[in-house]
């Protein structure tokens, strides 16, 4: 039995979502008596292999992929190759384990839940023709059956999903598990990457606006900006506050339409799903769709002028008042303590 953390590698540092997946893999493996493998796929796969061992992976399967340097993290170059890579790694590792005299081991493949993964998870499942459970917040596995908990109906309902099979794929929602170091001595296997036919797709342009390259799912402090911030003055106040409390800015649907912020920053059912240490909601009313993207945050603080705003129903701390008065005063207070 093996629990395999599938890790796309294209950045200088491993993303914390990858470490969370490794941590979850070690937890599942220890309760089911399985071994932890890390499948490192991508241009920086070799570089990250030692880090995977530090987080509990005893077997490292490394597949270096050549991708266009400018477009490392995008689906056309890396993502599309992951499907073939996973297929290849599954075939080869199964053959190796069989030649070592072991029967084909039951395998649980764990993925993170980034847009990169969402893009390829279904295709991986179809290629291997195995069960897939997406976006889980908890799971148990006994080598044959997998029982997973996943939020559904815009995060208003928890759904318990059951799957059976010798190979099962799951993606894990980010921000829910503390990455936990658990160094082990690891053996490394290296694989040649298969040829991937990109089926004529070409990356034309990568639009990464300045200050917009942060991946919100990784951020510990997020400042959610809603309709209550309505102009450049408000935007400046938010920017100042973000610097002072080391926060990253996210937006609700109101600002997807206003054009004041980049679309990349959208949090919600149709945007990113985040679970930071702190979600500071500024002028966000708390629509179902937005809440679905941030309700798992560890702490929620909300400022809104409407005391009846639904966001206050889930905020750990609710502040009723005008942002345009509160923010300058708060910024002043923060500056004086930090001075």
């Amino acid at each position: 039995m093996r629990v395999c953390a599938v890790i796309p590698c294209f950045q200088e540092e491993l993303r914390s979502s990858a470490l969370e997946v490794l941590t979850k893999a070690t937890i599942v493996a220890s309760s089911s008596g399985g071994r932890v493998e890390a499948w490192l796929v991508g241009p920086t796969a070799e570089k990250h292999s030692s880090k995977a061992a530090q987080y509990g992976a005893a077997t490292l399967r490394v597949m270096e992929l050549e991708v266009d340097s400018e477009a490392k993290g995008v689906n056309v170059s890396l993502g599309r190759r992951i499907v073939d890579a996973v297929d290849e790694l599954m075939t080869q590792s199964t053959a190796e384990l069989a030649t070592e005299g072991a029967p084909q081991p039951p395998s649980l493949l764990l993925f993170d839940n980034t847009e990169l993964t969402k893009d390829v998870l279904g295709a991986c499942g179809a290629r291997l023709d195995v069960p897939v459970i997406a976006d889980v917040v908890d799971l148990s596995w006994d080598g044959h059956q997998c029982i997973a908990q996943r939020p559904t109906y815009a995060s208003k309902v928890m759904s318990k999903v059951h799957a059976e099979g010798s190979v099962i794929l799951c993606s894990i929602r980010a921000g829910l598990f503390e990455p936990d170091e658990k160094p082990v001595k690891a053996t490394t296997h290296r694989y040649k990457s298969p040829q991937t036919d990109l089926l004529g797709q070409v990356l034309k342009e990568l639009v990464a606006p300045e200050g917009d390259t942060v991946d919100l799912t990784e951020a510990p402090i997020i400042i959610g900006v809603g309709r209550g911030i309505a102009d450049e003055t408000g935007k400046d106040l938010v920017a100042k506050l973000a610097t002072l409390i080391r926060g990253e800015i996210a937006i609700s649907r109101a600002h997807f339409e206003s054009g004041m912020y980049s679309h990349t920053l959208l949090v919600g059912q149709s945007g990113k799903v985040v679970a930071p240490r702190l979600y500071l909601a500024l002028g966000i009313s708390g629509s179902i769709q937005h809440v679905a993207g941030m309700s798992e945050s560890h702490t929620i603080i909300a400022i809104n002028k409407d005391p009846e705003a639904p966001i206050f129903d889930l905020a750990d701390l609710g502040i009723v008042g005008d942002l345009y008065q509160i923010l300058p005063a708060l910024i002043h207070a923060l500056e004086s303590t930090q001075a």
């Binding site: 928890m158 318990k160 309700s295 005391p307 129903d313 889930l314 609710g318 005063a329």
Partner: peptide, 26 residues
């Protein structure tokens, strides 16, 4: 290949403290 075994209400976050008052308090 996957089946839903049960649906349960999401554990609700309890509403925390709601602070109203003058700017200094907030």
């Amino acid at each position: 290949s996957t089946t839903i075994e049960s649906l349960t209400p999401m554990p609700e976050r309890a509403a925390g403290e709601l602070v109203e008052g003058d700017l200094e308090t907030l």
